[in-house]
Nucleic acid binder design. Structure first.
Lengths: 256, 256
DNA sequence: TATCATTGCGTTAATATGACACAATGATAA
DNA sequence: TTATCATTGTGTCATATTAACGCAATGATA
């Protein structure tokens, strides 16, 4: 199917395949070089960026739909995924953006389910940055990582959605261990600490962090140090998956 | 408009007024006689009960829709309301229940938006039990309070929705003060403690509870004791609304 | 007037937390 | 080869928080 055919089919016959008025938006977090990043798409013919999103197949669970979107954008399967909020302002319509897009593509459509209001279910995902191969969708001309402190202007209420996701992630940090999904198999203590600091957006005491995280029992110290590093070489650690999954960790007392 | 007309209009012309495939479900919590209760509806011609719910007007914010549903069922306005999760299994269809209902009412409708799959946004509300006047909706023949430990069989996934709401409320207790919406203007310390114990489903030490809750500064002790009570009369308290609203209280350290 | 379950206020020991000290490490540069 | 030095691993200590429990005051009831 040609690009034009795909677009036409989506705009005109979408309701045969998808649930109308409903969409998914995903905030995909990755951690790289001590920076927390999210994956954004740039829609064609638009100046603003957008969160990766998609629609829900008529016979599909919304969680599955979110997983599908994620796999499509990152190439990863079995991703850590968490629903956090549903956004349902009546102003949530991409009518203008869609019309602008269609005009540029050269397709005429006076009516479309895509012009309607959409209620969007927000999910956030934690992924291993190094394993992601960003893939743009049919509407987009770019798919890139952005540091969470340097987000470009976003369409609609996508910035609000992102803020909600980040806040949810920060609160989550108090109740569940995090890192398994964001870090490589083995990592150093300073790396893990940086991850926590980046998410919480504040400094933590190195020594107290070590004590707390070890007391939770979710880490196993490996008999191996990082090579080729200036100064004292830190040990590698990995997660004890059994304990990791059991532990609600009762947070680590890290408040936002 | 007659009952039959209303039903016909809803089933056949609903999409003109409401957003298809989308609904609201509300878990309405009330506290009475040291018991935490929720408000349930019994749909006509059905053996199982249901959470109060409704649809979203085409130009209505979903939060407003939830507020509307709540006001309709309880008569209360400006209720404490919190979105907690969205339920989107493709199995969420009330087709059979609807067909059974229509058959009993004597209305024929082979097709209806009401037979479709619904994605439902879950809200929970905290209300002052003593001020609620339960009002049943058009589908129902009863609207009653049930102790959360004695819930009758519920339709669809409504029990799961209730469990999610309760869990969310329990977690909330760690971060925000609760009680203003669930208790009368003035109340005693044992009453407040019972509320916390009921929500958390475990006993708390009377003296430690007193100390913690007073340390948070959200209570004002009134110069008045409860009358007509056996044994030592407890003092009345009320909430210091300013401090109540400011305080995230950093929980009271009450974990689930 | 004595009883007694309940309330209000207090104490203490155990534990958790925050702030900081210091030696060990090992690549880098003199 | 050796000194330098930023960084890591581990420990200490004062303070704050928490859990567990004691005891006198209250006031309706017997």
């Amino acid at each position: 199917m040609s690009f034009e055919q795909k677009i036409k089919s989506l705009y005109l016959d979408g309701p045969q395949k998808y649930v109308e008025h409903l969409s998914i938006d995903c905030v995909i977090f990755g951690f790289h070089q001590n920076e927390l990043k999210i994956l954004l798409l740039q829609p064609r013919y638009a100046s603003e960026w957008a969160l990766p999103g998609g629609f829900i197949n008529r016979q599909e669970d919304i969680d599955d739909a979110a997983n599908r979107v994620l796999t499509e954008r990152t190439g990863l399967k079995k991703i850590y995924l968490q629903q956090f909020h549903t956004f349902g302002s009546p102003a949530r319509s991409t009518k203008k953006i869609n019309e602008h897009f269609l005009k540029n593509v050269g397709i005429k459509a006076s009516k479309s389910w895509m012009f309607d209001r959409f209620v969007s279910v927000g999910y956030y995902a934690l992924v291993d940055f190094t394993k992601v191969q960003p893939v743009k969708d049919i509407f987009s001309e770019a798919c890139e990582w952005f540091n969470i402190h340097n987000i470009p202007p976003l369409i609609l209420d996508h910035e609000i959605i992102f803020r909600y996701a980040l806040n949810h992630l920060q609160l989550q940090l108090n109740y569940y261990p995090i890192g398994y999904n964001l870090l490589p198999k083995k990592f150093t203590m300073p790396e893990l600490q940086k991850l926590y600091e980046t998410i919480l957006d504040r400094q933590l005491d190195r020594r107290n962090f070590h004590r707390k995280i070890m007391a939770s029992g979710i880490l196993k110290k490996l008999n191996e140090t990082k090579k080729g590093v200036a100064h004292k070489a830190p040990y590698y650690y990995n997660f004890d998956l059994n304990k990791y999954r059991q532990s609600t960790v009762r947070g680590l007392g890290f408040d936002v």
